[in-house]
């Protein structure tokens, strides 16, 4: 019992280092700068919601949020659609070149992103896609492909063949068998991919920083760091509020979907 208590105390100390920096941000986001300078450890004397309004309007977070939502949603929908379709083909049809493509998918999982970012930027530039949503989204769809196709084809392959055969006997065409019978059974894997894609697009910093020359196209991560760099113009309050705005969606989803989140992030660990 005492041993268990001391173990708990030790783990508790670590939990404080995990949680406190985040609580600290939330607390400062509700203070005036004068109070932030004077006492960081206390609760806000009065709750200054103005900081959030300032971040949202003056520091353009409304615009960054819209960009991030559009980019994340499209990358999620299109990225998953292409992976599901291709995953089925890779699992169920022995087409020419299948093994080669699969091998390529595995190899590229280790390509460090700096190798790709510059040439991808030039490809987009030559196609006139700088400062466009399509130019932002395309590489994210591609980013979902290697791991997404591998995981989806593994999910389709794990389904017993009798399932599709009996469906065919009942007069189901291949397409209907795929959509109505096999696809619903792969939903756990689809959920994993959804979370991975959401996290990697929503939290990405390097690609939106490189892909755009126009600040109107920034996503919230880039907008938030720009705001942090301008803390002497806007004050510290909006910077903290901006961080909360950037993060709370992710934390909310994490708390609601905790089990799926942990599984997704551990399954997709090698991806970057």
């Amino acid at each position: 019992m005492i041993k268990r208590l001391s173990l708990t105390a030790f783990v508790f100390l670590f939990a404080v280092t995990s949680l406190y920096p985040l609580l600290w941000v939330v607390l400062q986001s509700l203070k005036r700068d004068a109070e932030f300078f004077a006492s960081q450890f206390s609760l806000p004397r009065e709750w200054v919601w103005r900081n959030y309004a300032d971040a949202w309007d003056k520091a353009n977070f409304a615009l960054y949020y819209k960009n991030t939502l559009i980019i994340t949603a499209s990358s999620l929908i299109f990225g998953l659609a292409v992976c599901i379709l291709a995953g089925y083909a890779f699992a169920k049809i022995d087409f020419v070149g299948r093994k080669t493509w699969q091998a390529m998918f595995v190899i590229v999982l280790f390509v460090p992103s700096p190798v790709l970012l510059m040439p991808v930027f030039f490809i987009n530039r030559d196609m006139g896609l700088i400062n466009t949503y399509i130019g932002m989204i395309g590489p994210y769809i591609c980013g979902a492909v290697p791991l997404g196709v591998l995981l989806m084809s593994a999910a389709f392959r794990s389904l017993p063949n009798e399932l599709s055969e009996s469906a065919r006997m009942d007069g189901c065409g291949e397409w209907r068998t795929f959509i109505r019978i096999l696809f619903p059974l792969t939903l756990p894997t689809v959920a994993t991919l959804c979370i991975l894609q959401f996290i990697s697009v929503w939290t990405d910093y390097m690609w939106p920083l490189i892909a755009n020359t126009d600040p109107k196209m920034y996503t919230i991560t880039v907008g938030m760091t720009q705001l942090a760099a301008k803390k002497f113009t806007f004050g510290y309050g909006p910077v903290f509020a901006g961080m909360v705005i950037t993060t709370f969606v992710v934390i909310l989803l994490y708390i609601v979907l905790q089990k799926y989140f942990v599984r997704a992030l551990t399954d997709g660990a090698v991806k970057g």
């Binding site: 783990v11 670590f14 939990a15 995990s18 949680l19 920096p21 985040l22 600290w24 941000v25 996290i199 929503w202 939290t203 910093y205 991560t221 880039v222 938030m224 760091t225 942090a228 910077v239 961080m243 950037t246 993060t247 992710v250 934390i251 994490y254 989140f261 942990v262 992030l265």
Partner: peptide, 15 residues
């Protein structure tokens, strides 16, 4: 304990 891994890396950097 999992929280620091969830929040965006850019936010951790600013924090």
């Amino acid at each position: 304990l999992f929280l620091p891994y969830i929040i965006p890396l850019s936010v951790s950097a600013v924090i």
